[in-house]
Design a protein around this nucleic acid. Structure first.
Length: 255
DNA sequence: ATGTCGCGTGTGACGCGA
């Protein structure tokens, strides 16, 4: 099976690219999307249904918004973190083909001294508490999405330049490690990968052309799923097409 | 070093978030 995640940075803009990606990866069982930036009434479910997808979506005005697309219907669908009251639409989960699929858009955090960073830390506490419970119920589980955390220095094009900023701070990395400590594995690091592999590049300053990026989009697999993971790919090509998202899709093949 | 996007407001330049 193939499971994927993609921060599309507005599904209204990126629907054609998404449909192209789905057509190019017909073996995909499920994909989670972040930053759809659409209220639920504006979600393009008809187009996606016509393309053969079962769709669950959860959005809001202007920011955030997530979706779960699958070939077979997702069951036990949950929107946002159970036990953590959140006004923002950042999580969607469902069980697809026997795998608990959790798609997450973890807060950006903006700056270490900002209210948004306080929110990011509290949000991650909430996510971890809920995940512990989900892992106790589901042997095969995947948590994937835009984490807005570069777990190690090799996941950042210039670690020194990021000291004192978000995405690489010890606090954020401690949260990432705490998720792994629940019994999850970073699928990308299960395999040998090219150096300077990133999943996001700033639109500004020729970030992609200069490969000034971060690896912040992740797929974490449970111990029950891990032995079956065959590969993990950052689909970099989709970042260089016309009107790209600032994030590349990431996917795992399993089985 | 913040030079690009996308959205909402409200019809067009600007503020916000990433």
């Amino acid at each position: 099976m193939k499971l994927a995640t993609w921060n599309v940075n507005s599904l209204a803009v990126r629907l054609p690219q998404l449909l192209d990606w789905l057509a190019a990866h017909p073996d995909t069982n499920a994909i989670v999307l972040q930053e759809t930036k659409l209220t639920d009434d504006k979600f393009p479910h008809a187009e996606l249904t016509a393309a053969g997808w079962q769709v669950q979506w959860f959005g809001q005005k202007t920011y955030n918004g997530v979706a779960l697309l699958s070939k077979t219907p997702a069951t036990d669908v949950v929107k946002n973190i159970v036990g953590y009251a959140d006004e923002q639409a950042r999580v969607i989960a469902g069980t697809v083909d026997g795998v608990r699929v959790i798609g997450a858009y973890i807060p950006n955090g903006q700056a270490l001294d900002s209210d948004k960073f306080v929110y990011k830390m509290a949000w991650l506490d909430g996510l971890r508490a809920w995940l512990r419970d989900e892992l106790s119920k589901h042997d095969k589980l995947v948590l994937m999405g835009d984490f807005n955390i570069a777990p190690e220095d090799r996941d950042c094009y210039d670690p020194a330049a990021f000291v004192g900023q978000t995405h690489t701070s010890p606090q954020e990395r401690a949260h990432f490690q705490a998720l792994l400590d629940l019994g999850l594995t970073d699928a990308y690091r299960m395999f040998e990968q090219a150096p300077k592999s990133y999943s996001w590049w700033d639109y500004r300053m020729l970030g992609f052309q200069k490969n000034k990026g971060l690896r912040i989009d992740h797929i974490l697999v449970s111990n029950g799923l891990k032995p079956d993971v065959k590969s993990c790919v950052i689909d970099r090509a989709w970042r260089k097409l016309p009107k790209p998202s600032d994030h590349a899709p990431v996917y795992v093949t399993i089985g």
